[in-house]
């Protein structure tokens, strides 16, 4: 219980920090005034409403979604390093975006910042992620053990990446730029409608994940034993894969592929709570994911500077040391 309170308080602190810091620093007092509806300047409102609040909401949703997704994949595949990136779901999303962005450029059309471009990019990413998941689902009934499925996912990801490289080679420089910017990941630039869509998809994914808790706990005992307990393994696998696509696919569609959070956060939750029960791990991973993502975004916007670092750079800097620590410290997590 103590850790929950600690994580919750740090979430609030990091959200406040995130709202305060940026290219322009907004004093905390002004933020309180803004939320209590007291006399805030037009200047603060103009920063908060269109920019900082949507961005922090997107960061929270992404952190929650990716962490809960990683947790389920690690349990399903009995592999501490499983996550949507390893399984090729993000690569699928990348392929969708690549076909959309660079495909248009092949016809001499350049998509830069129009509405069509942003909605189309998201839809393309979602379709790509979904296609890979359907492929994984079809194969998962053929491949009996999860290690084979994991290898299949990695290989699929590699092939997709190779296809994307090939497309990059032949595409125009402007289309290439749009694509590369998407791969760097960003929480800014989502309009309220897009945030509602992301929120709804993540909410459905989370609800399904909570429903998966019972079977996830049974899977900890090993697949053979879970089957003997009465778990319908095929259904369970499908439910977990659908939940993970909803979560990871949606975030990747809107924010780009964000690595390492999905692997690292569930391990932090396990270390803090020392409990393998998903009734504990799922909510704690969700909260921790939100904290870490908001923190990463705060660093990415380089307080006091006009520029922004790609979120993927920051997430790698935070996530990779944690993953290495886990690999070095204990062999089975």
């Amino acid at each position: 219980m103590g850790w929950y309170i600690f994580i919750f308080i740090s979430l609030i602190i990091f959200i406040l920090l995130n709202l305060t810091l940026g290219s322009v620093i907004v004093p905390v007092k002004e933020i309180f005034n803004f939320f209590t509806g007291e006399n805030t300047s037009k200047f603060v409102q103009d920063i908060m409403i269109p920019y900082r609040i949507p961005k922090v909401i997107t960061a929270i949703l992404s952190g929650v979604a990716l962490s809960v997704c990683g947790l389920q994949m690690q349990t399903l595949f009995r592999n501490p390093l499983a996550d949507p990136f390893i399984l090729g779901i993000s690569s699928g999303a990348g392929l969708g975006v690549a076909i959309f962005v660079m495909g248009f450029s092949a016809f001499g059309i350049t998509l830069t910042s129009s509405l069509l471009a942003s909605v189309g990019t998201a839809a393309a990413a979602w379709l790509g992620a979904f296609a890979v998941t359907i492929l994984l689902l079809m194969v998962s009934s053929k491949l009996r053990d999860n290690t084979s499925l994991l290898i299949f996912g990695i290989m699929l990801g590699s092939v997709v990446s190779a296809v994307i490289s090939l497309m990059q080679y032949f595409s125009s420089s402007s289309a290439l730029k749009v694509f590369v910017l998407w791969t760097m990941g960003s929480f800014s630039g989502l309009n309220p409608a897009q945030i509602w869509v992301l929120f709804s998809l993540v909410l459905v994914g989370l609800a399904l994940s909570v429903y998966n808790i019972k079977d996830l706990n049974a899977l900890l005992m090993g697949e053979a034993y879970a089957r003997s307990l009465g778990v319908n393994l095929e259904n369970t696998r499908k439910r977990i894969l659908v939940a993970t696509t909803l979560l990871a696919g949606s975030v990747t569609a809107f924010c780009g592929p964000i690595g390492f959070i999905g692997i690292a956060v569930p391990h932090i939750a396990r270390m803090l709570f020392r409990n393998a029960d998903h009734k504990v791990l799922l909510p704690s991973a969700a909260l921790l994911g939100a904290v870490i993502m908001v923190f990463a975004d705060t660093i990415a916007q380089l307080p006091g500077q006009p520029g922004v670092i790609p979120i993927n750079t920051v997430s790698a800097l935070i996530g990779v040391p944690i993953i290495l620590l886990i690999v070095l410290k204990s062999r089975f997590v």
Partner: peptide, 24 residues
């Protein structure tokens, strides 16, 4: 397979899968 940080009680209680509620 052994699972870290799974208490003996929780491990044995997993046998109740069919008789537990939707959250286990």
């Amino acid at each position: 397979p052994r699972t870290k940080n799974l208490s003996l009680f929780d491990m044995v209680a997993a046998g109740c899968y069919n008789r537990s509620n939707w959250l286990g």
